[in-house]
Structure formats: structure tokens, C-alpha cells
Design a protein around this nucleic acid. Structure first.
Lengths: 197, 197
DNA sequence: AAAAGAATAGAACGTTCGTGCTAATCTGTC
DNA sequence: GACAGATTAGCACGAACGTTCTATTCTTTT
């Protein structure tokens, strides 16, 4: 890894933390330069444009999320336990930084804009939905879920739950939300479960 | 109503439309002045600060939301039909403007900040949750829901559903989302319903 | 119609935004 | 250790930000 790449990584590390707290738009070149003790132009040279920087932050965030939350979950026992692991890891991820899950906040910031950031974000969300669908299928294979369920419907309901958790946790600072989330998750499982499992 | 109030209302009307599309932070004094064909300072005089303007936008939005979505719903048949009406009206409200529901986007923008905007937003969200709780109770009273259910748990799950709808609709532009939402809503009702109703 | 008060415009402020350009410094290769 | 190329800093730019001040124009009251 060359020197430039090292610096870039260090920048992205700081940028990711900032983006999680202030939103993607909150990460201005000036503030980021100050935080990394670089000059604005020196930092800027790594990214060519603000939009590129934002995309790279998302990419960097995704790599960390996949590594720390998704991969470990996928290595646990298939089926419902795996879904639970994924949900737990997502909750940890979303709770570890003050602003919550970067992808949730960024999705809200960019859902109504055009450009490469929105495009990239959209693709990332589809990957995420794909991951959720995959674990849902694994619960069918293990026989925990019925064979005839609508996977995408399950994914929608599961993802909604996470979004609800996100709002209750970060805006409302609800203390019961961890329990509420677990209860709702159990409800969800029951609805899709085979009666005899 | 004095002249000043008239202008202020006209400003807020434009501001609300802008905020729904661009987010609260997207409504800058300059852009808003241009849109209302006023001078920056002339407009500014009505609000004394940007934060005040943002709060007033939220207030104005809330008054319209209450009037066009909540009140009509509360006048329909109590219980599940009333909940359905409320959900439908919320969906209409969230779908009518390009950026979605102002309160959802603003909640994401301000969940991790301090100041009067966040404080006000928080209070508004509590009012909203209160409304949801109220209609949930009405379904207990009609006997459609069991007497021993946890109302706040229901509210959480219902609100989560709306947030899921919001993301699927505005970011993913999902076409099936209206059906998915209805299916999930039916699921939700079934879970809290009396078996014999 | 005059006087008083409210509402608006104009110009300017200091700051920050993203982005170029040029020059200096550092890193790795021969 | 020199040279080439990559990396970083310095400085400047036009534009937009929120805000303040003063002056002008409208409303309202008398």
C-alpha cells in the first residue's frame, strides 16, 4: 500500500465517523481537512469532487459493515439464529455511532436527489435487501419458515422493524426499544414459522 | 389578519413545499426569498433566525397534516377502520410531495443535533405517537383488539411499517410497496385481534 | 390628510462552501 | 544520490450562507 492510499484510508476513517454523526452532507471538505490535519486542497486531491468523496465514504462504510456485521452473522447457524445474529449486529452497528446507521441517514438525505451518490446508495440498499432475502431463504431451507412464504414481504417487514428501531433509538431515545424490537421480531418469526417447528 | 401575517403564511406555504422536497436544511433564506420574490432581509425579519424559521415550518406543516390527515381519520368509524383511514391519509401525505413526509426527513436530519428544532421535532413525534396510541385504544374499545395488548408495542410496529413504506417508496421506488404495506398491516391487525372478531 | 408604526428592500459583514492553479515537498526507483 | 512521479500545501476564486444595519415604502390609526 502506497503512501497515498494510507492517507486516503485515514481520511476515510475520520470521514466515516463524521458522516455517521453529522450525515453525509455534514462532512465538508474544510471540516474534514481540519480533523485530519491536512490542507483542504491536499485532501481534495484524493477525491476530485465532493460527490466522489461521499461515494467513497459510503463504500468504505459498507466494507466495514460487511466485515463486522454481515460476515460474522453469515457464519452462524443457518435459519432463524442467523437472522437474529444479523439483526443484533445491525443494531450494534446502528447504536455504536451517535447518528445511527450511515446508510439509513444517507438514504434519507439523498432519496430525493439525483447524481452518483443517490445511484450508489440505491445499489447498496438493494445489496442489503438481497442479504436479508438470503437469510430469509436460509430459514426456509432449515424448515423453520414455511416453504410458501413471500420472502420479499418478510424482508420488508423486517427492514421496517429496523427503521422503527432506528427512529425510536436515535430521536426518541426510547429505553424500552430494545425489548420492543425483540418482541416484534418474535412476532415476525411466528408469523412465518411452520406451526410444528 | 394583518398584512404581515398574510405574507408570513405565504412564505411558510412555499417553505413547506420546499422543505418537503429538499429537507429542512435545504430551505435556505436566499432560495426561499427568491421563490417568494422577496428580499432576504425582508423575509428574514419575519423569523429572526433560521432556527425559528425551521420551527415555524414544522409547526405549519403539522397544522396542515392534522387538518388534512388526522382530523378526517378521527371522524371515521372507531377501531380498525379508523386506523386504516389514518394510515391511508398518512400514506397520501407522504406520497403527495416528492421528498416524502416532512417529519420523517426532518427527524433524520435533526435526530443527532441540539437546539430548538430538535426539541420541537421530538415533541411533535410524541404527539404523533400519542395519536397512534389513541386509535389503537379505540380498537380495544370496539372489541376488535384484545383487552390485554400492549398499545405502545402496537404503535411501534405500526409506525415502523410506515417508515419502511417511506424508504421503499421514496428511495427504492418500489412498485409493489402499496400491496406489501397492506399485507403487513393485515398481519399486524391479526396479531392484535380477538380471535372471534 | 398627517402621523405613527409595521413591513420590506438594499447593501454590506464575516464565514464557509467546493474547486482550481502553482509551487513545494516527499516517496520510491534506478 | 539523482531523477521522476506522487503527494501535499498555499493561495485565490466566485458563490452562497446567516445575519445586521439603515433607509425606504407601504398600512393603519387618528
Amino acid at each position: 500500500m502506497t503512501k497515498g492510499d494510507e492517507t486516503k484510508n485515514a481520511i476515510l476513517d475520520t470521514a466515516l465517523a463524521m458522516a455517521s454523526e453529522l450525515g453525509l452532507e455534514g462532512v465538508t471538505i474544510g471540516i474534514l481537512a481540519k480533523a485530519t490535519k491536512m490542507s483542504k486542497s491536499g485532501l481534495f486531491a484524493h477525491f476530485q469532487s465532493k460527490e466522489n468523496l461521499q461515494v467513497e465514504i459510503l463504500k468504505y462504510g459498507a466494507s466495514i459493515f460487511i466485515e463486522t456485521a454481515v460476515m460474522p452473522a453469515l457464519q452462524t447457524e443457518a435459519g432463524i439464529p442467523r437472522i437474529r445474529a444479523l439483526v443484533n449486529n445491525w443494531v450494534k452497528w446502528a447504536s455504536s455511532r451517535a447518528g445511527g446507521c450511515l446508510f439509513v441517514t444517507a438514504s434519507n438525505e439523498f432519496s430525493n436527489r439525483e447524481g452518483i451518490v443517490r445511484t450508489f446508495l440505491l445499489q447498496q440498499q438493494k445489496v442489503w435487501v438481497g442479504i436479508l432475502r438470503k437469510v430469509a431463504r436460509s430459514a426456509i431451507k432449515t424448515g423453520e419458515f414455511r416453504q410458501d412464504i413471500d420472502c420479499d414481504q418478510f424482508v420488508f417487514e423486517l427492514y421496517s422493524l429496523l427503521l422503527g428501531f432506528h427512529l425510536y433509538h436515535h430521536l426518541l431515545h426510547s429505553e424500552e426499544i430494545d425489548t420492543r424490537k425483540s418482541v416484534a421480531l418474535d412476532h415476525l418469526f411466528d408469523k412465518y414459522r411452520k406451526f410444528d417447528s
